[in-house]
Design a binder for these strands. Structure first.
Lengths: 216, 216
DNA sequence: TATATATTGTGAAAAATATCACATATGCAA
DNA sequence: TTGCATATGTGATATTTTTCACAATATATA
């Protein structure tokens, strides 16, 4: 157990993997799971799993493993999934609407309360009961609805300007899907979801599949 | 310059970032860019940028920087974006349709040729001219259309079975959006796109924002 | 031509991350 | 109760990744 600030990005990201694996194990009716099991599911090593967990406490029983339900809840609480977050989504295009109606987020406590767009045809309508508001109202609406986190699914060239409005409204966490890197103040947490990266990674792998040698 | 097999995941992923940043710089009319510029755009260090690039050659000019267009093309060629890949997408739900009509992939050489679903209402129709086929035809269609890469956007419980069919059809690269970890043979490249991870990461950050101390 | 300034490319050093290996603790069977 | 099998938790070690620091090389200017 150590200072929480010193826990690495990678460990936190793996906690998400463990959480998902445990949810599945729970559904499948398992009561305990070993570091070995978890490792195999997520293509990691057992030592890695144990080390990651040990940063936050000791949740297992020697000789037995980890209690599935309990560990899942513990990790959920570490990640802050045991509470609810107010989320707004900006940019109701194809991807935006898809995310707005994605039920998994809801289940994990991410409640999408507001949608924003600049298209008059969309403004005033709703998706799964979530109203689509005028993007001009971002400032007041984000504050009024105590939004904790904003998901941005809008075109690259508009993203930076909107991000600045979001920051001005006091939001401290942004998940960005727009294909640009945003500049935000230090106290705002920003993560970029770049779907091209994984695709390009696969392209790289395919290209170099039969090439164990040097690269020009 | 070193053996290409030894280049780290992180470096490859950063190449994607550089590629995107360079595309933007090119659009903005820049002819050269320094490692410092690139670093600032992507929140990295200049040394990191130079080191990453140095694994593949030396593309810059001392005292000047890197030629934007040339470096972009060079990185594109390293990532395999200078050629075209045949892509199929399985699972035409909300996310699937959003990705099917996402033009950026097309631009980078990822040509979505086929869509698959098991819903009779969808089979036979098309999205942006891409036909939606019966998921039962995966085996023959993937081979016939020489599909290089498959994007899976289907429910978790069906994913593993479908992945196995995809592998049997000889596809060597899978981008998985289903919320499970798939088991595939060693010679198949698999990447998981897990949108919950980034959201959960932000949740963790928000939760521990004012907590520099120990964690229970 | 000489001098000042900018910026790369890269070994070496530092820092971060992952793995090892084993003492420790548990369950079960005889 | 003893012995065996299993599996955690964690310091120590190994590996990987990042950063440093500087020689090398370019441009600009006088």
């Amino acid at each position: 157990m150590q200072n929480i600030r010193k826990i690495s990005d990678s460990t936190i990201r793996r906690l998400s993997l463990y959480y998902r694996a445990l949810s599945n194990s729970e559904k499948d009716g398992y009561f305990t799971v070993s570091s070995q099991d978890l490792a195999k599911k997520e293509r990691l090593t057992p030592a890695q799993v144990r080390k990651d967990l040990s940063f936050f406490g000791s949740f297992g029983t020697r000789g037995l493993g980890y209690p599935v339900k309990e560990l899942k809840e513990k990790i959920g609480s570490i990640l802050g999934l045991n509470r609810s977050w107010n989320v707004a989504l900006i940019g109701v295009g194809n991807l935006g609407s898809a995310l707005a109606s994605y039920k998994e987020f809801q289940k994990q406590g991410f409640h999408i309360k507001l949608l924003f767009d600049n298209d008059p045809k969309k403004i005033g309508s709703s998706i799964d009961g979530i109203p689509i508001l005028d993007i001009k109202q971002i400032g007041t609406q984000l504050k009024q609805n105590k939004i904790d986190l904003v998901i941005m699914t809008l075109p690259g060239h508009t993203a930076q300007g909107v991000a600045e409005e979001v920051v001005r409204a006091g939001v401290k966490a942004i998940l960005n899907f727009a294909p640009v890197s945003l500049k935000v103040p230090e106290d705002v947490f920003l993560r970029n979801e770049n779907m091209a990266i994984e695709l390009e990674y696969l392209s790289f792998c395919l290209k170099n599949r039969n090439n164990p040698g040097k690269h020009a």
